[in-house]
Simulated assay, not measured.
Amino acid sequence: MLSDALERSRVLSELDRTLLVEAAAGTGKTSLIAGRVVMLMLYGAPPHSIAAITFTELAASELSLRIRKYATQLLAGEIPKVLRGAVTLELLNERKAVLKSAIGAFDEITVCTIHAFCQQIIMAYAVETGLDPGSRMMDGPAADAMFESVISKWLFERLSLQTREGEDPVAVLSKFEPLKVVKDSFDLAKLKLEHPGAGTVSVDF
């Protein structure tokens, strides 16, 4: 018997309470949380009222698969290991119709990352947040690629620009040290990205 069996049992039985589950990696937190979601469904919680939020897309995918797996096993009359002790065959037979209905609406359960969950809220309250409802979340590499694309386009336009006084200062500098101008442009853009309020100091020549 596991030393934390009582605490694990609470996670599966105290469905009307807010609990903090802390444990090391590989101790079965995902299985336990999936089991709690299934227990909520078994006791009649509408799938659309359930939200399981994780840190990564991989964890969210794994959690969703386990919830569906456990629910399907119960419906087939098999009690998953994580739910043994919390679910009896008598309870299962009594609540099978409720569980079957919940599985039919499984896609209404929110299982996603924190960022994706916030994205859903923003899209639902776009007017209140003042943000574009068509905006979407991007991972780090995609955001970096878009950032570099925008700066590259800006730099290309500056190098092609003709002013009333002649060539653009950026274009003039690039004739002498083109690689340094490109590097400095990207460095300054990244600095501005990290410090949006940063500006330049006026110099009297």
Rank of each mutant, 00 (worst) to 15 (best):
R10Y: 12
L12M: 11
L12K: 05
L12V: 11
L12P: 02
S13Y: 10
E14T: 00
L15W: 09
L15I: 04
L15N: 06
T18V: 14
T18R: 12
L19N: 00
V21G: 06
V21D: 03
V21W: 07
E22G: 01
A23M: 10
A24H: 13
A24Q: 14
A24P: 09
A25P: 11
T27I: 04
T27R: 04
S31N: 15
L32W: 05
L32S: 07
I33D: 04
I33R: 01
I33E: 05
G35K: 03
G35I: 08
V37Y: 02
V38K: 01
V38E: 02
V38A: 05
M41R: 03
M41P: 04
M41K: 06
Y43T: 12
G44Y: 09
G44L: 09
G44A: 08
P46H: 15
P47G: 13
H48R: 15
H48V: 06
H48L: 00
S49C: 13
S49V: 14
I50A: 06
A51C: 13
A52K: 06
T54R: 08
F55R: 10
F55G: 08
T56W: 10
T56S: 14
T56Q: 06
E57M: 12
L58P: 00
L58N: 09
A59H: 05
A60S: 14
S61E: 14
S61P: 00
S61W: 02
L63P: 03
S64V: 00
S64R: 08
S64H: 02
L65V: 12
I67V: 15
R68H: 09
K69S: 09
K69E: 10
Y70D: 02
A71K: 01
L74K: 02
L74I: 06
L74G: 01
L74H: 02
L75E: 13
A76S: 14
G77E: 13
